[in-house]
Design a protein around this nucleic acid. Structure first.
Lengths: 196, 196, 196, 196
DNA sequence: GTTTAAGCGAGACGGTACGTCAAGTCTTTGG
DNA sequence: CCAAAGACTTGACGTACCGTCTCGCTTAAAC
């Protein structure tokens, strides 16, 4: 699938300029006041160029976050399950709210309303990390740290849930101690003998 | 604070019409395409009347949800803690996503970006229910069903978190069985002996 | 026509306050920005009270000018025809543009577009003065200063015309010398023998 | 000042459509009820496009009249001074009130209140014609038909004044006979020996 | 002296148009 | 043929006043 002669070739410098402008404008005015027009003007780029390559404002920001975020498909495995889980949770927190002005929250908000964006957000940012998370839990099962029949779906809900809970309620992200408490509770729930 | 002697008073019929129009338009086109203009037109009301009494589109929807939602300050207490908790969780779910077209999700999304709306949303919809929830947990502590030193903040995060988690990831709300599993895990975590 | 039983009891103090507020607001912001709402607020009066007694903004200003203007049905007759005519012209100038911020010009403008107001303006301000003017010319005819067959309609057009001409072209009203020149020309035209 | 290399250029078709819509709407409802919104709707044009190129409703109408009006910088000179002057006066009358519904009067009215519009109106419509008029009078002086010291400013006031006088008083424009009478009087005034 | 109906202030109401903003599309010109 | 520039249509925004309409209160006339 290499481009043929005279094939349309995307300008990498424009792409960079657009992402940079987006990042700056988010930092200055917040995601809420981010407009395509402003991005185009700041990046020195025609609006057409933006619309040619991205379907929406959110998609640009998504690409920005994706580039910034750390990558790594294999889960960390230090042997300390709780610590590894905390690192994984922290990674998601850092994507969504590394700083007050960062666009992660705005992107989450927009994705609630825009199914297409929501899908892209999950596919590119969320699900790979969930998958890594589950891998780590399965490794724990293999190591005998968790029962083989532990309900990993419930574990996901319980561990990632608080992040979104606090996001939704403007409560500020859980700090390190609270993360530890959450993880400790969940691990206890998974290992404690079930009633009956 | 009764109105002064010469105060012209608010028209209850307009208020009703505005809320009704809002509800209809959400049902027809979704919260996303809801506009003040359309509400005014549908309600047969001047835009000014809307702006006089509500600061934003979200505020109208908030009032709509608030009126629709069930009220009740005292927590249910049937003796069955898990069942009572499930009822309380279900109540919040029903406010946010009673139906696909209901505006709860849109309102949540908007409140993420609009601090004023977020504050109002928490004050009027969320916090009263959290308070009720905590009351029920305290009653359980008094009844010896939960340890006196159980961390209720963590319990809140663990129980409400999944709702927002699933909201954020477009996963659909937990069904009754999943709710039960979540609650069972959390109760186990709260009652299981702590490590160390 | 004394008021019958149950006659409307108009509040003279409100009327005064409205005219005073109108005058002030014209002075401050110009006729253009004059609004009924502002008049009502400044006068400490309900809008209803204004609409009860005046059909339009212009009608209020007309009443204001009418009260301010000098009255006098009999024309001045000092024997000096040119001087008397100049006094009569000056009187009209003083009604329309006593000062830069005065509402006379605005009223003229509005009356061009509002037939009802135009009619009222002519009846109450213009025509009485035209009638007086014609009387003076007729006195001049009787005194032999003007030919008996002088065309008084043309004289009116020629003498009052320049006022409106200059108004329309934002040229500033004719000063005393220019008025004299205009009058001298017209009197010459009226007395000069017609071409045969 | 030709447009830069990458300049998108003004749409002539939009401009035409806007002027046409303006003309139609004036004919149908009169200048008074002319709104930018209606023009945009009728012309199938965005309001922004109108605001981009014209500062006000009046400016559009001015451009409309300017396009419609006859052009011609050199004054007519048939040798018959009175007839030439009448033609020049008639030209101004035809611009302002060619028909009952024409927007000329409204434009005059608005220009009385809007200095910017007034300036534009004079520059584009009035002053060129005044200049032509003065040229013709100077030609008459050269031809010995008028004294070299005739006061042309006074002549202007006396000849154009009646037009605005009658406009202001809703009297209807002078017909051909009255125009002749006015011109005859003024020429007599200019040629008659001065008193003293 | 009461009664009582009008005028009154206040201001909410349904509307119309305003002038602005940003969206997404289209057109022109240049590299 | 991509990209920049920016003009275009569209549609919603929030505001300003319009002229109308209830409200209670005040007040002068009629009883």
């Amino acid at each position: 699938m290499s481009p043929g002669p005279n094939a349309a070739r995307r300008s990498e410098s424009s792409r960079k300029a657009i992402l940079a402008a987006t990042e700056e404008l988010c930092r200055e005015n917040g995601y809420r006041k981010l407009t395509i027009e402003a991005i185009a003007a700041r990046a020195g780029v025609g609006k057409t160029t933006i619309y040619r390559w991205w379907p929406s404002r959110g998609a640009i920001v998504l690409e920005l976050l994706d580039e910034t975020a750390t990558v790594g498909t294999a889960p960390p495995n230090t042997g300390d399950l709780a610590a590894d889980l905390r690192a994984l949770l922290q990674e998601v927190i850092d994507i969504i709210v590394p700083a007050d002005t960062s666009p992660g929250v705005g992107l989450m908000a927009e994705s609630l309303q825009d199914p297409e964006l929501g899908r892209a957000l999950r596919e590119r940012l969320i699900e790979p990390r969930i998958e890594t998370f589950k891998q780590r839990l399965r490794q724990a099962q293999d190591a005998g740290q968790l029962p083989a029949d532990a309900d990993l779906e419930v574990a996901l809900d319980l561990l990632y849930g608080p992040i979104y809970h606090r996001l939704a309620l403007h409560l500020g992200m859980p700090d390190s101690d609270h993360l530890d408490a959450l993880i400790a509770h969940v691990l206890r729930a998974l290992t404690a003998p079930k009633a009956g």
